[in-house]
Design a protein around this nucleic acid. Structure first.
Lengths: 121, 121
DNA sequence: TTCTATGTGTGGCTTTAGCCACACATAAGG
DNA sequence: CCTTATGTGTGGCTAAAGCCACACATAGAA
């Protein structure tokens, strides 16, 4: 899975949330902001990399994501884990518990999720 | 805090683990591998960005990290959270619980960590 | 049918990342 | 003192990221 640059990721974020969109629509939703021509260039790159497909409807191309949000998430997490926790997801999560000050409620919720996980095994 | 590129991050990883090192020493430890001259160029960039300091001892400069591992970790996590969980660390962790198949032992350990967190509040 | 607003394709620009060759400097050992 | 192994500084290269101007195309309204 070819990796995504910062700007490409912003675009994928929009597509993961918005299903089928044409450039002008995507443009307005890109978090960092981007010109129309620049956006279209990036869409072509994403097309080549296989991260999106497009289909002509009327005058415009409509784009949709083809690579899964979860897959990209997973590989980004793995990269971070490699640097900060020797590749271990568990140790990564442990560091998150330490560093990202969670509210008492957050902690409760997470414990609940983990318990569910235990049961379904 | 200026952000780090892939290669710069690899170098910082080495420095976070190795305290005071000269280029030749760093070079051998960089995970992805890198030429000596290339490495030194990157060190100068890191110097300008304020991520490292250096001090001459004998013939060589010895480098050490000045930005904290935890700080960089935090900001990288925040970036990922922005894309994948609306900026919320809790939801990020929830996604990790869902996606990163943890062993039964991992789950237990994490619950324990969370319980500790609860107590110390 | 003609016009126009909306899209597209193309070519090319600037900046940054990443890398390296080569000339010069110098600590430290003989 | 002289040599040499080890570092450094400089200048510059290529590839990729990110961006945009402008000419051409055409769906759909008038």
């Amino acid at each position: 899975m070819t990796s995504l640059t910062k700007k490409e990721l912003e675009i994928m974020k929009v597509l993961w949330e918005g299903s089928e969109l044409k450039p002008a629509e995507i443009q307005e939703l890109v978090p960092g902001g981007v010109g129309n021509a620049a956006l279209r260039s990036l869409l072509l790159v994403l097309l080549e990399k296989g991260h999106v497909q497009r289909e002509k409807r009327g005058k415009a191309f409509y784009y949709r994501a083809t690579t899964s949000r979860a897959g990209v998430f997973h590989s980004m997490i793995r990269q971070i884990a490699n640097v900060f926790s020797g590749g271990s997801p568990r140790r990564l999560m442990a560091q998150l518990v330490e560093n990202e000050d969670l509210s008492a409620e957050d902690v409760k919720e997470l414990k609940r999720l983990l318990s569910d996980k235990e049961v379904e095994k």
